[in-house]
Design a binder for these strands. Structure first.
Lengths: 193, 193
DNA sequence: ATAACTCTTTCACTTAAGTTAAGAAATGAT
DNA sequence: ATCATTTCTTAACTTAAGTGAAAGAGTTAT
């Protein structure tokens, strides 16, 4: 299981056995059931997540409505904004499938960072890469219609459309479930000619 | 002028005089005229920007249309995605006002990072903070209408509405210039009662 | 197995954004 | 200062998303 994590890290830096053991000794691997809530609104947290298997969802509640902002699946990591800003969380994080993930603590990371500067490099590179990736996603979102966004998702992350409930998907696409349903019907109609 | 930069950095770490001099010796301060294009589509670049005074804009061209994705003003930094991904740029970056900024090179940064680990920490913290901030902006964009987005911008960055041409602002808000114009008229109409 | 719930689809109606076109205002160049 | 070009606004029309309501599918619990 941990091999998935080390394979991922190897994209950024090469680790010695000592360094790998330092990570393993932290006991960060967890297996959680579908529906588990990892973080609630108002909570203070220092935890970051990295999904090895399964899917977690970030959302917030506004006017009694769940607004789904992101999904993280295999090989994707997520540090909730509240961990960075050190303020109570505005977001919920929950597992929409049985999930295996690592949960790491920012204090713990700070300690590892100072012992092994290489980790700081990993974190910096990952943050920079995610920033660029998110920038591109944001720009694509801005410049396209709901229909284009759905088609784009179908191309880029077809798995999500299978494994995620429609209403969460609709919210993720910035539209209502009704619009998503209608939009899909329209696409099928078009493809028939 | 450089004090602006050091004041900014002091939010993240405390620098010694030696460290400050190391930065100054790199000769990163530049003054550029309105309209100057800092980065073009297709170009390979390793340059990051930090605005001390003025405003720069990132955009790309699709179907002959400029799509404005972001503005950076005083105390804001920007590393184009192409620098991170090491591929030719999809974006243009230009100055919409006479601007004073720092332009730094990623090779240079790597060297400084290895000499002064503190810099790596600055870069990591900045990237993490920007990532969280951008996440929040993205989520707000997704869950609000063009009108709400305009009103939100009016609150959060009223200066942009003054200093940026309408068509660039419209594109930034993900709508057409006509819609922005109409939407503003609607808001004024409402405020009259 | 069935009842209770939740999720998804469909419909009719309202509202606002995209589109095309034309006129008004602002900007820049000579 | 004038003219030309670009930018911004207004209008009429088309298209699609939001809303509220209700029916059909799919789940879960008892």
């Amino acid at each position: 299981m941990q091999d998935i994590l080390f394979d991922f890290i190897s994209k950024y830096v090469t680790l010695t056995e000592d360094e790998k053991n330092a990570i393993l000794s932290l006991n960060i691997f967890h297996s959680v059931k579908k529906g588990t809530i990892l973080l609630k609104e108002g909570q203070k947290s220092k935890e970051s997540y990295f999904v090895l298997k399964g899917c977690i969802r970030a959302y917030y509640i506004s006017d009694g409505e769940e607004k789904t902002t992101s999904f993280y699946t295999e090989m994707e990591g997520f540090t909730p904004p509240c961990v960075v800003s050190k303020t109570p969380s505005e977001y919920y994080v929950s597992c929409i499938e049985d999930t295996i993930l690592t949960i790491s603590n920012s204090d713990m990371e700070a300690e590892v960072n100072s012992k092994f500067p290489k980790f700081e490099t990993i974190c910096r590179l990952m943050a920079e890469e995610l920033l660029a990736k998110q920038r591109i996603d944001f720009d694509a979102f801005k410049t396209s219609s709901p229909e284009q966004r759905y088609l784009n998702l179908l191309q880029k992350r077809p798995d999500l459309i299978q494994r995620v409930p429609q209403q969460q998907l609709a919210s993720y696409l910035g539209i209502t479930p009704q619009s998503l349903s209608r939009l899909r019907a329209r696409i099928i109609e078009k493809s028939k000619g």
